[in-house]
Structures are given as C-alpha cells and as structure tokens.
C-alpha cells in the first residue's frame, strides 16, 4: 500500500514528535546522571543503602527509608482510593438518578482541580492536629496517605467512570435480557469489560501519588526513618528533594539528584511491572 503525499508528511511529522518526546525523557535521565555524577564518582552505590542515616552534610547518604516511605504512602493511598473511586463511579453510572449523577460528576471534577498545595495546607492545619490528638506528632505516614487518597480519588473515579461509560450498550442489554440483577450485571459484565480502562486509571493515580511533593512535604513530617507504625513521621523521595535542594551545595546537591534517579527508577520499575501484568492478562 502506498501512502499519499499528505500521509507521508504527516507520518514524518508524527515520527519527529515521537522521537522528540523519547529524546526528552532520555535527556532528563542524562541530566540526572550528570548532576549526580560528582557524588557517584567517589561514593559507592551500595552506600545509599548501607549508610547509617541520611545526613548528607556529614557524608551519610542512606536513601532506603525514603524509598520505602514513597512506596508505603503510594500503596496506602491506592488501597484506599481504588475501592472508593470505583464505588463512586459505579454509583454515578448505575445507581444514581441522572440529574444527581451529573451533579456528582461535576463535584468530583472540582475535587480533581484543587491544587496540591491547598490539600497540603488543609492537611497541615486541620488533619494533622486531629491525628495528633489520637497519637502525636500528627504529621505522619497516615496523614500523608489520607491527603494522597483525597488527591488521587478523583483520578480513579473519573477514569473508572469513563471506562464504564465506554462499555458497549449491547453488552448491558444482553445482560439485562438474561435477567441478571443489577449487581450481577455490574460484576459479571460491566466491570470485566471496563477492566483495562480502570487499570489504566489506577496506574495514572499511582504516578500522581508517587510524584506528589508539596502536600506530602507539608503533612508527612519529613523525618528520615523506616516507619514502624502509621503514626511515624516519614520523608518521601520527592519531599527530600524539595526540602533540601534550595540550600544544598556540592556533594549534598548531587546526592539529591541521586534521590531523583532513585525516584525515576522506581517509576520505571512500576510502569514495567504494570506492562508485564497487563500483557499476561491479555494472554489468558
């Protein structure tokens, strides 16, 4: 099949755009490596795991507590936001009267539009003192998880809603004709048909939770330690960069870029795992 002239031009343009986006990702990686090089040159990679603590000014570079803080807070937020988000989508799609469903959807969209620093400020001035009454100091992994949940809930809810809306009407009519109950229709037909869309939404939400900086910086307490309970203060990799970058020099600054590299690798691993998982599912 031969392409027309316009098609060929479009193809070249699109190819250029695609290559450019790929190049930008590579350039960012290159930049991170270049900026972290001063410290990687004389500090072995294993020291970022084996050092006793994170005190970069004193030459101690342990990153692992921050890595686990990032993973715990993201995982916690996903565990809370996924069922809530899917439930909210099911409500607005299958249970709510159309007028209410429309209003409800607008509200969720509004929730998605609130800037993260507002969530952080609310968390710091309202949520943290409340949790502090339960168990001081109040700024903790739990507070971080709750604020993150609020932030990613709209992402999960709206993408799940869109995925459910895209389920072909014929499926639903067929299910109804078979005499399935409403829940039977949802669990047997609608959810399986919308599964890939919902999964994509959860991945998107995970990305937002991992990358979130300001809100977590304000409510999680930022002490670099391996959390032993939900009430422990933790520091995520993103918060680490935002907290210290402004005043860091020399090796300290380079070590912060190493945390950036660690964050990027985490995201890569996550995306890779999701890719493998979804591929396996397609095969069965």
């Amino acid at each position: 099949m031969s392409l027309s002239r316009a098609d060929k031009q479009l193809a070249a343009l699109l190819r250029g755009c695609a290559l450019l986006s790929a190049a930008i990702v590579l350039l960012i990686l290159l930049f991170l490596v270049k900026e972290s090089w001063p410290v990687l040159r004389h500090v072995a990679l294993t020291r970022f795991v084996t050092d006793t603590s994170w005190h970069p000014v004193d030459g101690l570079y342990k990153l692992t507590p921050m890595l686990s803080a990032t993973l715990y807070s993201t995982l916690g937020a996903l565990l809370l936001a996924t069922p809530l988000g899917i439930a909210s989508a099911l409500f607005s799609r299958y249970y709510a009267p159309p007028f209410l469903a429309g209003c409800y959807r607008r509200l969720i969209e509004l929730l998605a539009g609130i800037p993260s620093v507002v969530y952080g400020f609310w968390g710091l001035t309202t949520l943290a003192p409340l949790i502090g009454r339960l168990h001081p100091p109040g700024v903790s992994l739990l507070t971080g998880i709750l604020v993150l949940t609020l932030m990613i809930l709209p992402t999960v809810a709206l993408t799940a809603d869109a995925a459910l809306a895209a389920v072909p009407v014929a499926y639903l009519r067929g299910a109804a004709a078979l005499g399935l109950s409403r829940w039977g229709l949802i669990s047997g037909v609608a959810l399986p048909a919308a599964r890939s869309g919902i999964t994509a939404g959860i991945m998107l939400a995970a990305g937002r939770a991992i990358g979130e900086t300001m809100a977590v910086l304000m409510v999680a307490g930022n002490v670099v330690q391996q959390p032993h309970s939900l009430f422990d203060s933790v520091r995520t990799l993103t918060a680490n960069i935002a907290l210290e970058m402004a005043y860091a020099t020399g090796d300290h600054r380079a070590a912060l870029f190493v945390s950036g590299l660690a964050l990027m690798s985490t995201v890569l691993v996550l995306v890779g795992t999701a890719e493998v998982l979804s591929r396996e599912r397609h095969h069965d």
């Binding site: 710091l124 100091p137 700024v139 910086l217 304000m218 930022n222 670099v224």
Partner: peptide, 17 residues
C-alpha cells in the same frame, strides 16, 4: 519528630501542635 523546610512551615507546625 518533624523536619520542616521554611520558617512558615515551622510556625504552622507549632501552631497546630
């Protein structure tokens, strides 16, 4: 128990606790 960045965050933390 808490590590903060700028002065404002420090004041908000002490006000809230």
């Amino acid at each position: 128990q808490v590590v903060i960045g700028d002065n404002q965050q420090g004041i908000k933390t002490v006000v809230g606790n």
